[in-house]
């Protein structure tokens, strides 16, 4: 386990909402390991807790969020127990983040170049001039044309793709060990998406950093990830390397996700959809959390919560009756 850059163990995160005493559990006992130099995908629908997992580890939860238990080991230190001052030295320096919406994630009233050089001055201890020179270099590196001129531009003067390049430049400025990318291409056009993913790949090859790619887009996962965690309703339901996952996924939810990808199908065939929606965090089913939406659910699935089990070669799955086995939940008949 020495070669993992970040290990999250049994993370539980809850949220308070106005006027309610009970807290909603958004992340419920998540374990994730990110090997050095590799790209790990964290996949799931909106609201499954994938973003919350990364924000918890970075200490960036909104005010109403709180980590209940768990640890996040980065270079032998638990990020969740570090005092804020120490954690700040890691943030933006050794672990950086890029976010989904590059329009709102960049400060609208500060020129983009200044926003890039900010981290350089803070962590790199550079003076204004050096930081500016370095920032322009970085902007050029991430493919911002006319970087010298763009340095003084405000975010709204750039296109979405350029803004995301700036975000990446900002995050890569200090050559972090780990880059957490939270839906980095969701708001972009498909052609721009490919460019951005290619850029991330190149940068990763050069610096040897690890990437945690948070996305709901399996296409992105197939493109860039080495291994994948699939999350559903605050829990990891499946974990495998990317080939195993696409070749023989075991969890019905993952299968549903893959089946609902549009592809070259004969005319007239319907696109697969998973019925229903993610259950309310305050009213989770007692058994398997996916049971209400699962086509294969049987009595046992409703009553007994499945555990995350190794189904061979380190392929983990949280299901009583993984796809590919012909069991339908053991004893009970559905």
């Amino acid at each position: 386990m020495q070669d993992n850059i970040l290990e999250i163990h049994n993370l539980v995160t809850s949220f308070a909402s106005d006027g309610r005493k009970d807290r909603a559990i958004a992340v419920n006992g998540v374990d994730i390991a990110i090997p050095k130099g590799s790209t790990v995908g964290l996949v799931g629908e909106s609201g499954c807790g994938k973003s919350v997992t990364s924000l918890s580890a970075m200490g960036l939860l909104p005010d109403n969020g709180r980590v209940e238990s768990g640890e996040a080991i980065f270079c032998g230190r638990d990020l969740l127990k570090l005092p804020d001052r120490e954690l700040r030295k890691i943030r933006g320096n050794r672990i950086s983040m890029i976010f989904q919406e590059p329009m709102t994630s960049l400060n609208p009233v500060i020129p983009v170049g200044k926003q890039v050089s900010e981290a350089l001055r803070l962590h790199g201890g550079m003076d204004k001039e050096t930081a500016k020179r370095k920032s322009i270099e970085i902007l050029e590196r991430v493919g911002v044309p006319e970087a010298r001129r763009r340095y003084d531009n405000y975010p709204h003067q750039l296109s979405g793709g350029l803004r995301q390049r700036v975000m990446i430049g900002m995050a890569m400025a200090l050559k972090p060990d780990l880059l957490i990318a939270d839906e980095p291409t969701t708001a972009l056009d498909v052609s721009i998406e490919a460019q951005i993913l290619r850029l991330m790949r190149t940068l990763q090859r050069e610096s040897g950093m690890s990437i945690l790619m948070i996305t709901h887009n399996l296409g992105v996962v197939a493109e860039i990830c080495d291994e994948v965690y699939v999350m559903y309703a605050g829990e990891v339901v499946e974990h495998a390397d990317v080939y195993a996952l696409f070749r023989d996924c075991a969890h019905p939810y993952t299968r549903g996700l893959i089946a609902s990808l549009p592809r070259m199908t004969p005319k007239g065939q319907r696109l697969y959809t998973i019925r229903g929606t993610v259950p309310n965090l305050r009213a989770m089913p007692a058994g398997c959390r996916f049971a209400p939406r699962c086509e294969r659910a049987c009595k046992r699935c409703w009553e007994e919560k499945p555990l995350l089990q190794d189904i061979g070669n380190g392929h983990l799955c949280r299901c009583h009756a993984p796809v590919g086995t012909n069991g339908n939940g053991g004893e009970g008949n559905g």
Partner: peptide
Amino acid sequence: DLYTDQLSHRILDAEAEIQPD
């Protein structure tokens, strides 16, 4: 506009789930 952007891409995408209108 900023506000609507913000709403649609809330940090906590689960929040909508937690607080039904």
